[in-house]
Design a protein around this nucleic acid. Structure first.
Lengths: 129, 129, 129, 129
DNA sequence: GTGGTCTAGACCACG
DNA sequence: GTGGTCTAGACCACA
């Protein structure tokens, strides 16, 4: 797991995303254990409180669950998480799309941008909050 | 100009967007004056410092220029601002699109979401920062 | 006389410079009249108060003098004004030169920049305050 | 870091320069933390808002980056900052040099002034904005 | 009147 | 503790 420190996206949110992505990519599955808070914190070199916050929220979203004394496990199927993920991304796209329209930019130009973004996928540092 | 004080989008950023939109929509043009800091602050009921910050940043982006003792004027043609605006929105869309791909979501599903967003354009209060 | 409205250099200071330059370039001479406040204000499309301020300061510097009922005349020889002008420019160059040195930039690099500036002289809008 | 409160150069601009100089002089390096807003504000006895403004602008210039909850870090190599610094100083010198030429002053006289400025480097209080 | 800088102090999110 | 936003109000220079 790689955290982007220069990103304005808070670290705890980045961690949440990474966990979900790991399931979506099939790297971990339902009932699998995920790294302990302290282990992960050491690995990615962040404050354990930050990892704890990410896990706490994931637990609250019922994506993971904690087995005291054992650790955290995945609590949701890939399909369910995918559904959630789609909804989140949709929310994130809402505002820019709305701004496109409000600025009087044509659907053609919009489609061109979207296509360009889908095809070109180089790594980039900047993130949205 | 209407500002959403409860939006997670900071007020000063909302102001910046509104000014750009006003040019894109042809409501103000190159060399036109925009409302004075104090006037706009009164109008939208925020502190003058907040408006000043928005204007200052627009000035750094060369979208407007200041004439101390006179006011702020538009410094960029509609076309130039449009270009900038497109780039900004593209940047804002980059991350979510990349996450779409990373999550192994198909182009079909992606297109479906995009289409839905473009068509359904009702106002919504929830925004991302 | 052309005033650069987009410049951060206040208009009244630009006017002062222009008057001095006119003498230095031999376009006006000792005891010649310069445009009246209202005339100049109309010409360059600025507030008469602004021209008045420029003239007042020029008078205070003994570069012009007013003959009530007649107008303003040049009060200083080209040579004297040149001397003043040199001193002013020297003052203006002081700070950047100092910063060059403080930043640990070599004399060679400095000389290269100076040479480049002296040779390349295209028009530019930006000014220092 | 020493700030001249009486200088016509605004405090926030002085802070920006000091940060850049610190990197140029090798006192701080890429990825190093710089003093926190509140700490620096206390040290140089100015309001935290003033420091925040300086840092914010440095961030927009990509000289530093912020990790909310952690602090600000240097985001640019010494070489990159040097390049920027040179360009800034060049911009600052442009106007006065142009005026030298416009006033019909010879290259010899100009070189004499430049040489004098480079050699005589005593501290001086008067500064241009 | 205008913009530009600065202070004092509040409240929030992040780690 | 850190940064980020915002308010309230002061003082200055410019037109």
């Amino acid at each position: 797991m790689k955290i982007e420190l220069r990103s304005p996206l808070p670290v705890y949110k980045q961690i949440k995303i990474k966990v979900k992505e790991a399931v979506l990519q099939g790297r971990i599955n339902l009932d699998d254990a995920i790294p302990s808070i302290r282990e992960l914190a050491r690995d990615i070199n962040v404050n354990p409180n930050t990892v704890a916050r990410a896990y706490r929220e994931l637990e609250h979203e019922k994506i993971i669950f904690s087995r005291p004394g054992v650790g955290y496990m995945i609590n949701m199927s890939r399909e369910q998480i995918k559904e959630r993920f789609l909804k989140e991304l949709e929310d994130e796209l809402k505002r820019p799309v709305k701004r496109f329209k409000k600025a009087g930019i044509s659907k053609d130009e919009f489609d061109r941008v979207i296509k360009k973004l889908w095809n070109g996928s180089g790594s980039n540092i900047k993130e949205n909050r």
